[in-house]
């Protein structure tokens, strides 16, 4: 059978790689066979001051929103002519669609907030020299966590904490912390050691090195982690419906159990549109918030 040390090393290499590919980070990451370049490595200097080309192409700005408008408009038009029976009408009446949408957005925003609050500081802490010893343990937990199905985790929390929003939120946070954590850790580790050495050499304290050099250099990967968390959370928020946590999943599950296609389709279309919109907004933020010196390409 496989030798333990090798297997461990292999598992470790995917711990950094897996969330990258499964978590749809757009940069070519460790999963892509080591072609990911460490942030800050490119030798070109920052673009000359004064000449600040727009960072976002018009195509990127227009394609997805117009697609979403077309899809939502199509759904709306289809709904206007669709004949709803009592059950469907009941499931959609009294602003329940808006309520579900608002709940979904609230669940996503809240869980993402807490995920970042937990994962980024923890990532910083775990990459400090003092806590290096804990890394294999964290890797093992991350690997096991990755294998746990979200719906199972959520169901266990509902049994433990009772039906409601709290259980759903905790499940979503627990599920998204791991990918963001390993993204942050990978980002901080990939920093060029000579830069850190130089920063220490000019007399910066460890705290200054962290705040003024390490974190700015790791911003792209941390932002990729934010995007991963957002997209994951929009998805797991649909599962909150199984634990009485509300959200657009309510429409989908009602549609499936009652065999009412209009309800099912509306819930699904809205969820998909929301997921794509959130991903698009996060991708804009990824470009806009990246430190100027680390911009990719010309």
């Amino acid at each position: 059978m496989s030798a333990p040390p090798d297997a461990a090393a292999d598992a470790a290499s995917t711990a950094a790689g897996a969330p990258d590919a499964s978590g749809l980070a757009r940069s070519s990451g460790p999963a892509a066979g080591g072609s990911g370049h460490p942030a800050g490595a490119p030798g070109e200097g920052p673009p000359p001051y004064g000449a600040r080309p727009s960072r976002i192409s018009t195509r990127k700005l227009t394609v997805l929103p117009s697609l979403l408008v077309v899809v939502l408009l199509g759904t709306w038009l289809w709904f206007r002519q669709a004949e709803l029976d009592a059950i469907s009408a009941n499931a959609l009446a009294n602003g329940q669609v808006w309520l579900a949408l608002r709940q979904h957005i609230a669940l996503t925003a809240l869980s993402t907030f807490f995920v970042l609050l937990i994962a980024v500081p923890l990532g910083v802490l775990l990459t400090r020299r003092r806590f290096r010893a804990a890394t294999p343990f964290v890797r093992a937990v991350a690997n096991a966590g990755q294998a746990t199905p979200a719906i199972g985790l959520l169901a266990l929390l509902v049994i433990w904490l009772g039906i409601g929003r709290t259980a759903a939120l905790i499940g979503m946070i627990a599920y998204a912390v791991l990918p963001v954590l390993s993204n942050t850790m990978a980002g901080l580790r990939a920093n060029d050691p000579t830069l850190l050495e130089a920063a220490r050499g000019i007399g910066m304290s460890p705290a200054e090195v962290l705040v003024r050099v390490e974190l700015p250099l790791a911003v792209p990967l941390i932002l990729a982690g934010v995007r991963t968390a957002l997209v994951l959370n929009v998805g797991t928020a649909t599962l909150a419906a199984f634990g009485g946590g509300g959200g657009l999943g309510v429409l989908i599950t009602t549609g499936i159990t009652n065999q009412r296609m209009p309800v099912l389709v509306l819930g699904s279309v809205l969820t998909v549109a929301l997921a794509l919109l959130v991903d698009w907004l996060a991708s804009l933020a990824e470009v806009l918030l990246r430190p100027r010196g680390l911009q990719e390409g010309p």
């Binding site: 649909t238 099912l264 998909v272």
Partner: peptide, 22 residues
């Protein structure tokens, strides 16, 4: 393919049911 992966799985299944059934 990455846009596909962005789509939540429950919603994807929800969109497939009207077309191919349960």
């Amino acid at each position: 393919t990455s846009a596909l992966l962005t789509v939540p799985s429950l919603a994807m299944i929800g969109l497939l049911i009207p077309v191919v059934g349960l």
